[in-house]
Design a protein around this nucleic acid. Structure first.
Lengths: 242, 242
DNA sequence: AAAATAAACTTGTACGTACAAGTTGAAATT
DNA sequence: AATTTCAACTTGTACGTACAAGTTTATTTT
């Protein structure tokens, strides 16, 4: 962490504590004045930290009441499976390795444009199948340019979170992404991995992730069986008021 | 406009001026000190307005340089068609009315949960087909609760932008949305409107839009033929957890 | 002329004060 | 006991100061 600003330090601390359930969802954070006293900071500085938590969706503030913890992450938004009414139980999710991480040249029909830097570096590729309640729902192909990611092939285990691994091992954070979405008919590869009949409609998503290393992008190709679980996400600033 | 706060007034003024090309994309806003002097405000207040413009994606700030206009809207991200490499020519897009706006009760199998307020109000419904280069690509069903939207049925023309109409007529702004996405096989209704063969894979998207009126939501059901054009979007700062 | 330096900008961080306005619960009144 | 009132919270808005740090332009020096 190289953020030396006081409000950034407080922001990170509060975010960690929210994620660690020190302040569970629905609970109220200490008041601004309490945070001032505890951290020996001015109210302006404390408010700057809280403001960042608010814009990132972790808390909502209510005049007269306080700062209420809203959610523990805003990234569920990007790629989460939903049942028809309730969120899928995370304990029922599992990941199967289809292709262990290997170093290889970029595929010839790679659907994304690559920079010269990326082309020259070659890529690391792996593939996984995600299941919910033992039912395969997503077949995911990931491609990473081999740029300053030492020991990746050996150290990354496919059953762990890819993004968390990148953050912990390389201080690499995902800052944004572009995606394109199609509906396609399942071919023989998909029928095998997703256990669906041929020509079943599948969601195909091509994703390019941007990171805090300006020239390093990650690429994913996803095939999703939405027969039972829809792919859901949320975007923008949503007003609460349950 | 019922925002009496000074920073809100400045925020709205600057936003309008950005949209009106007083400050085109890439240009630099007046410096914070200039804005202070011009509006007789303190720098904190000016910074609060600029901060809001920044989090909403209108400007980026750069230390030492200034506030640079980034984009004129943040909602195009939500729904745009892409060709394989370049954006589709907007002049080739057209809209066909399938169902003119009519007042009706909510459908019995409506896929979203409705509040009691919305249920009681009934809904306004209309449907459109969007085409790119004379090829139908999207069949869109829209449902709006009949809440304080006078003259809607009479005044809204289906070939105009729905969101722009709401903004201009009712000062209604879209602040966010939730969506669920499926891949489905085309049935007889879709084959008719989208001119595709039966069982063609289609993208189905259910959307709930949130607005600046906290109890007013808009609902859309979309069917997209992605044979030729993918549905693309970009999302800003996101977090890990995959 | 070229390079180093300094001055004059810009935004970023951090401190402080004061009061407005919404919420809550205890105290006083009925 | 029920209601009203008020005090003690909470966040929101707005003002001010001071300095740090990045960028650009003008000046001075080489």
């Amino acid at each position: 962490m190289e953020s030396s600003a006081q409000y950034q330090l407080l922001y990170h601390r509060l975010k960690k504590e929210i994620l660690a359930d020190v302040y569970p969802i629905g609970s109220v954070l200490p008041s601004e004045n309490d945070l001032c006293a505890a951290a020996s900071l001015s109210r302006s500085t404390v408010r700057q930290a809280l403001s960042q938590l608010e814009t990132e969706g972790y808390i909502t503030k209510q005049k007269g009441k306080g700062s209420i913890v809203k959610s523990k992450s805003r990234s569920l938004n990007l790629l989460s499976f939903h049942g028809f009414s309730a969120m899928v139980d995370k304990t029922k999710m599992s990941t199967l390795s289809v292709q262990e991480p290997t170093f290889m040249p970029w595929p010839e029909d790679f659907p994304f444009e690559l920079s010269e830097l990326e082309k020259g570096a070659g890529c690391i590729h792996f593939a996984r199948v995600r299941s919910v309640a033992r039912r395969p729902v997503m077949y995911e192909l990931t491609f990473v340019p081999n740029l300053n990611l030492p020991r990746f092939v050996r150290q990354f285990k496919l059953n762990q979170s890819f993004f968390e691994f990148l953050a912990k091992e390389y201080q690499l954070e995902i800052t944004g992404m572009e995606q394109q979405i199609w509906a396609v008919a399942a071919n023989s590869i998909h029928t095998q991995h997703l256990q669906v009949e041929s020509n079943t409609p599948l969601l195909k998503i091509n994703r390019k992730y941007h990171s805090n290393r300006s020239h390093l992008h990650l690429y994913s190709i996803l095939y999703c069986d939405t027969e039972k679980y829809a792919l859901g996400n949320t975007s923008g600033v949503i007003n609460q008021s349950l």
